[in-house]
């Protein structure tokens, strides 16, 4: 996928995130679609696309209403952390590792966007993260045939 296409798709997904996605809450929790797709691309060895997707998607969400830069910073931070961790600790990967990263990544984003120690807010973090993992699993199922043989992460050089 070229850069222009990646940015265009990130724009469309950002629009979906603020229009269609809020119509599908699970107990008021919503997934972090931009982050999940970024992580999926990274787990498909599409590191460059994953980073561009995360940066572009984060900026678009910032433009569409989030506090200035908050979404961009945290999405990029989670993506860079993921790249570092998978290269350092995982020679190969499977869907469970990808889903675990979706779950933990969403928790980190949620804590950064709305820091709180309120038990209900924490429950919200967990629900959103589970929802993100579920969306990640759906994306995996859709593209499994196309990408299954490529679900290997390049070991750290």
């Amino acid at each position: 996928m070229n850069t222009f296409k990646t940015i265009l798709f990130a724009y469309l997904i950002a629009l979906v995130s603020v229009t269609i996605l809020p119509k599908f809450p699970i107990y008021n929790a919503l997934p972090n679609l931009i982050l999940v797709i970024s992580l999926y691309l990274i787990f498909q060895n599409e590191i460059r696309e994953g980073v561009i997707w995360g940066v572009a998607g984060g900026i678009f969400l910032n433009f569409l209403g989030f506090k200035m830069l908050s979404n961009t910073i945290i999405t990029v931070a989670v993506i860079l952390l993921t790249i570092f961790l998978v290269r350092k600790f995982f020679e190969t990967s499977n869907v469970y590792i990808f889903l675990a990263f979706c779950f933990i990544g969403t928790i980190i984003c949620s804590i950064f966007l709305q820091p709180s120690v309120n038990i209900l807010v924490i429950a919200g973090y967990l629900l959103s993260s589970l929802y993100s993992a579920l969306v990640g699993f759906l994306i995996y199922l859709i593209y499994r045939k196309k990408y299954s043989q490529r679900l290997n992460i390049i070991p750290m050089e």
């Binding site: 603020v18 919503l30 209403g65 989030f66 949620s110 966007l113 709305q114």
Partner: peptide
């Protein structure tokens, strides 16, 4: 024409 894409920032 749009809503907050998460359950933390209600707008």
């Amino acid at each position: 024409i749009g809503r907050s894409p998460n359950n933390f920032s209600h707008y």
